[in-house]
């Protein structure tokens, strides 16, 4: 049946109205502020009085010695986090799905989502203890195998893995929730049919469960591309030190330090805009690719 020209469909546009109004007021109107990225922003002159300087703010950041190192660190940390942050929750969701006892499943689900609610300030303090080369439990454990104490937070080659692992540890339980919700959407008839055909658990997982949550996986993977230049300011800021700048310094921490004395609104806005544009391009490209080649609309 074709509803296209029925009056009833105007209600669809009406439904969009409140949401549109909200984003126009609270997102699109303030976006005029992006102009700051092209200004020598003077707080007392404001958005309309400040002098326009074209791409000077961008050039300034680009010209700094450490920009390339910082950009490389950011992408490398963010990409590792994206990949690990995608795979681990899927695996855990699938493993939880295999658990028969409801109380155990619910218990685990609840416990693994706990670290999400502790801030990085607190977790960083705890990690410093746990990873301490002198008293940390991790190094004591490694000592049992004759491994000399490692100063994880002060060693440039260990710092990135520590960031990635601790980030996954903090967030995987929370991210698992989406996949668990997606699992509920799979048609139970499919499993019954598969059992009739004699498919084992592994085959059912492979041919029914995974394809069933594939759209959500693709969706979350695409959306996570928006974070390709967000390596996690709070986490890094609370854990890094000049010793590990070579691998641990990221765009956000770098810009923060650059603006310590006089907060450079122009530079900060320019960097933010750059990050937004990169994210936008990546997300658009993956959206196009999925549509062109799989005829699938991610959103």
């Amino acid at each position: 049946m074709n509803n296209r020209f029925k009056l009833g469909n105007y209600s669809l546009y009406l439904m969009l109205l409140p949401g549109l109004a909200l984003i126009v007021i609270f997102n699109y109107v303030p976006m005029a502020g992006l102009a700051i990225g092209f200004q020598q922003f003077n707080p007392t002159k404001g958005l309309f009085g400040s002098e326009y300087i074209g791409f000077e703010n961008f050039k300034y950041v680009y010209s700094l010695d450490d920009t390339m190192t910082v950009l490389r660190n950011t992408v490398s940390i963010a990409v590792m986090k994206m990949i690990a942050g995608l795979i681990v929750p899927i695996v855990v969701a699938l493993l939880l799905n295999e658990v028969g006892k409801a109380y155990f499943r619910k218990g685990v689900q609840t416990l693994i989502y706990l670290p999400h609610f502790l801030s990085w300030v607190i977790l960083a303090g705890i990690l410093m203890d746990v990873l301490s080369p002198s008293t940390g439990i991790v190094n004591q454990f490694l000592g049992l195998f004759g491994i000399k104490p490692i100063f994880f937070l002060g060693n440039p080659s260990w710092f990135q893995p520590v960031l990635v692992i601790s980030d996954v540890w903090k967030e995987f339980g929370f991210n698992t929730i989406v996949y668990l919700a997606a699992l509920t959407g799979i048609n139970p008839n499919l499993y019954e049919a598969a059992q009739m055909d004699g498919a084992g658990r592994r085959k059912q997982t492979w041919y029914i469960t995974l394809p069933g949550i594939l759209p959500i996986i693709i969706l979350l993977a695409t959306l996570s591309l928006g974070n390709v230049l967000n390596a996690g300011f709070d986490q890094v800021f609370n854990m890094y030190s000049p010793v590990v700048y070579s691998t641990g310094d990221i765009i956000d921490t770098y810009v923060y330090r650059l603006g310590m004395i006089n907060f450079q609104f122009g530079v900060a806005t320019a960097v933010g805009l750059f990050k937004s544009v990169v994210s936008f391009v990546l997300i658009s490209v993956s959206y196009m690719l999925a549509y062109r080649f799989a005829n699938y609309r991610i959103f």
Partner: peptide, 30 residues
């Protein structure tokens, strides 16, 4: 799109706000 014309445009209008924002000062002023 057959039921909601300009659907794609609408979606992107929303997605765009997820990636771009005007920053603290303009939002505060609004």
């Amino acid at each position: 799109s057959s039921q909601l014309r300009f659907r794609t445009a609408f979606v992107w209008l929303f997605v765009f706000t997820m990636l771009f924002n005007g920053g603290l000062i303009p939002t505060y002023v609004v």
